[in-house]
Design a protein around this nucleic acid. Structure first.
Lengths: 346, 346
DNA sequence: ATGAAAGCGCTAACAA
DNA sequence: TTGTTAGCGCTTTCAT
């Protein structure tokens, strides 16, 4: 009869050292590819490690400084654009000794702080914060504690590196495209966060500003019309309902995010209007769903994969040297024209 | 002039103890709401904690057994159904001292094992594995090390708890719905994993089997037609191209997942066919995108939120008592009929 | 090139 | 009720 297996103690570095007839120091050095181990020692230790199936205890390592873990905070797991960023990140990290863990999507500043703290408490070696809504001061403070890369926030910092897309240009691409098609009443759906503090740095604000600038540049200053909701499906839906209720309806809607554009399409369908015959719609992010044929949404491509890869690179560099000057990477967006935009109805 | 701030040492339990003029034990007890602390002590310690802004070091705690961290493994962050599960999970965990961290999406058995191991190494107090593809033996082994709940795999285990949907019934709901509409040539797109070992436990296999059984029950055994691809957009697209190329085209396609149904819609649109006039399409999971009006996909609702909440509950229970008998929760699916299914063309 | 030993921050067994 | 103290597994000086 089997006895209930004693809760098997995990193999430690001591077991490995004993099995390989060497010191724990030697094992530790091999684990870290540290300087000063003979090939013979290497071989002995590696064999013992694989024979025993040893795996280093991350907590114990953390107590001495390193966890080999990188924490990623994504604000909204449902927005497929963030999945693209994540792919780029993980692809770039894959070759290293680091492991990626994600903080769960969080809404609101408080929840965001909780997730960030949780990651710091758990000794992350570095963090990537995607489109955080915290104040700049808070981000600086966080970055002072652990190497941090902030994705999708404009404005340079002395403490953290940034990767962002040129949202000003991106918004202009859309407006110009629609204006070129002959539209004049081009409305915009923005994501509006109440915290004024960091507003100027947020991509949503920059896109709205880019929209305004481009409208003015095209002599359409009088047609500027913004519905302030949120970058999610419901936000797009509600914003569009607002816009469709205007005395003079817009002939084109530029939603600041694809996911909001989906909501816009929803509201438009509900109103019995056709896209693009009655009204044109453009999004932002060029997510998988924009490319999806039955939707086929005109959108702005942000190269999420590249953003993620760049963020990973910057983070690894900063972990390697915490005193290097901070870098700001700004990527250029590209317009992808599909079937939801066309000339306005005659 | 500011001097570069000395890399501020983190506040430890010792600092708190000193500041509150008590022992570290006292602080530790307060932190854990442990038995045997006077209200006075409580107050003193709590005040010191907040005055100093102390936060426990998770790594140090981990070395003594607990990290207050729960690891979730999601196979595919792009499938919005998994976001529903995650929501249910986090909602249930929110009130507790535990923090949720996610392993990044992983494809393939090896990547899955890497993520699972990474979580074990980092001392997760518990894990939720969503639709894992590892062998059953491996899952049992993992669950032997750390409390584990497996979501979306059928078959009971002595070691881990499970939450799953009744996929056999779910598939039958779809087939019966289509057959009731008058369809006979009802095809299925399945997710086919090569690892035969755990195949029988996987929801995709069960759905395919449910499809077969229901088809036979309806006297449509001769019409059984399965395209084996994968549960993602491309899989649905390719599978549908196969099915549309049949000498006699199916009049309805039952995709085993909404995300695959999207790919199916794509292929159908490309072929110049209309849904549901020329061909009906049904999915599975009732994701946000199925409900999305311009798509309006008939689908099977799995109540992802509830699945997640149940998984969280089981996990917390198991963490509290590792020896309690394992539980198997099976939830009943419901059909949500929308606009992609209709009687076959005359 | 190799090893002995201190100590990271916390918990828990034990002593007072 | 409160405090003292021995580790948890690892990295890192510092000898050898």
């Amino acid at each position: 009869m089997d006895r209930p297996a004693a809760p098997t103690r995990r193999i430690t570095i001591i077991d490995v050292a004993r099995h390989a007839q060497v010191s724990t120091t030697a094992v530790s050095k091999v684990l870290r590819n540290a300087y000063g181990v003979s090939p013979t020692m290497q071989a002995k230790v590696r064999q013992a490690i694989s024979e025993l199936g040893y795996r280093p205890n991350a907590a114990a390592r953390a107590m001495r400084g390193q966890t080999y873990t990188i924490g990623i905070m994504l604000p909204d797991i449902r927005n497929p654009f963030f999945a693209d960023i994540l792919d780029g990140l993980t692809a770039r990290i894959a070759g290293t000794d680091y492991q990626v863990l994600l903080g769960p999507g969080c809404n609101g500043e408080e929840a965001e702080a909780r997730v960030i703290h949780a990651m710091i408490d758990r000794g992350m070696d570095g963090m990537v914060l995607v489109a955080p809504i915290s104040t700049r001061a808070y981000l600086e403070q966080v970055a002072g504690v652990v190497p941090t890369v902030v994705v999708g926030r404009h404005g340079r910092s002395q403490t953290y590196d940034t990767v962002a897309d040129d949202d000003l240009t991106g918004a202009a691409l859309v407006v110009n495209h629609l204006a070129d098609l002959g539209h004049r009443r081009i409305a915009h759906i923005e994501h509006h966060e109440t915290t004024a503090d960091c507003l100027a740095e947020m991509p949503n604000a920059i896109r709205a500003e880019g929209y305004r600038q481009a409208m003015r540049a095209r002599g359409l200053a009088d047609e500027i019309d913004i519905a302030s909701t949120r970058y999610n499906q419901e936000g797009g839906y509600l914003g569009t309902r607002q816009l469709l209720a205007r005395p003079v309806r817009p002939t084109a809607i530029f939603a600041g995010a694809d996911i909001a554009a989906l909501g816009a399409l929803d509201a438009i369908a509900e109103a019995g209007l056709r896209v693009p015959d009655d009204i044109s719609v453009a999004g932002y992010d060029n997510t998988t769903f924009a490319a999806f044929r039955p939707i086929s949404l005109t959108s702005v491509d942000q190269a999420g994969h590249e953003i993620g890869a760049d963020a990973a690179r910057l983070l690894l560099d900063r972990i390697a040297d915490r005193n290097r000057p901070t870098a700001q990477i700004k990527l250029s967006p590209a317009l992808v024209v599909r079937r939801t935009t066309a000339p306005p109805p005659a």
